[in-house]
C-alpha cells in the first residue's frame, strides 16, 4: 500500500516535471522563433520605418548613411552591396511587376515611364542573387546616356529572353530577376513625383509568359 502510494507520487512528479520541461522548451522555441524571424523580416524586406515603396519599387531611405538605423545597416551588410548614401543617390529595386507578381525570366516585361529628373540614371537587370545575367550581347543596363527615348520624352525597356526591337535587356535562364533603378542627384525629391503622391516611377507590365 505504502509502495503503491509512493509509486503514484513518483509518477505524478515525473509527469509534472516532464510537462514543465516541455513547456519550457516550447517557450524557448517561441522566443527564438519570434525574435529571429521578426528580425529577419525587418532586415530582409524592410518596413515603413526603413523603406519607401512605390508600386513594385522599394528604396531603403537611409542606405549607406553614417547615421543609418540598425535594420538598414544589417540589410546592406547581409547583401554585400556597395551602396551610395541616399544624400546623393537613390536606388530603387523591383522584384515583382506592377501587379505584384514575382519577376521571372520565363516572362517578358515592359518597363515604361517618364525620364527621371536627375543628373544621371540607369536601369539594370540582375538575377535574384544580384549577379548579372550572362548573354552573348553583353547587355545588362541602360543609362540616361544610352537609352533610346521616345519623342514624348518617355522610355520603354523590354526584358525578354529573345531579342526585341528598341531598348532590350536579355533575361535568358536567370530564373527570378530583379530590376535596379539608380538615380544620381535627383533634381527634386527622388527624381520622380513624390512617392507619397503615387509617384511617376516606371511601371513594370507583364507582356506574356512562356
Amino acid at each position: 500500500m505504502m509502495i503503491a502510494l509512493t509509486l503514484q507520487k513518483l509518477k505524478r512528479s515525473v509527469l509534472t516535471a516532464s510537462a514543465r520541461l516541455i513547456e519550457a522548451a516550447l517557450a524557448v522555441a517561441a522566443v527564438l522563433g519570434l525574435g529571429l524571424m521578426s528580425s529577419w523580416y525587418m532586415v530582409e524586406a524592410g518596413t515603413r520605418l526603413t523603406t519607401e515603396r512605390v508600386g513594385p519599387w522599394v528604396t531603403w531611405t537611409s542606405a549607406a548613411k553614417p547615421d543609418a538605423d540598425p535594420y538598414t545597416r544589417a540589410h546592406f551588410a547581409g547583401s554585400g552591396t556597395l551602396a551610395v548614401s541616399t544624400d546623393v543617390q537613390r536606388t530603387f529595386v523591383a522584384k515583382s511587376d506592377s501587379d505584384g507578381e514575382r519577376l521571372t525570366s520565363s516572362c517578358e516585361y515592359q518597363v515604361a515611364g517618364k525620364l527621371p529628373q536627375a543628373d544621371w540614371w540607369s536601369i539594370v537587370v540582375f538575377d535574384a542573387g544580384g549577379m548579372l545575367i550572362s548573354n552573348p550581347a553583353g547587355r545588362h543596363a541602360f543609362t540616361s546616356q544610352t537609352v533610346a527615348v521616345a519623342s514624348n520624352g518617355a522610355f520603354t525597356v523590354t526584358l525578354a529572353r529573345e531579342a526585341r526591337p528598341g531598348n532590350w535587356l536579355p533575361t535568358r535562364g536567370a530564373g527570378r530577376i530583379s530590376i535596379v533603378l539608380t538615380v544620381i542627384e535627383p533634381r527634386s525629391g527622388d527624381g520622380f513625383a513624390r512617392a507619397s503622391d503615387g509617384g511617376d516611377l516606371p511601371t513594370i507590365g507583364k507582356i506574356r509568359c512562356r
Binding site: L34, G35, L36, P70, A77, G78
Partner: peptide, 24 residues
C-alpha cells in the same frame, strides 16, 4: 516570451552585420 523575443530581435539585428559574409 514577448519580452525575451524582443531582446533576441535586438541582439540578432545588431549582430547581423558582424556575422554576414565578406564585406564590400
Amino acid at each position: 516570451i514577448v519580452l525575451a523575443a524582443a531582446i533576441v530581435h535586438i541582439l540578432a539585428t545588431y549582430a547581423a552585420p558582424m556575422v554576414s559574409g565578406r564585406s564590400p
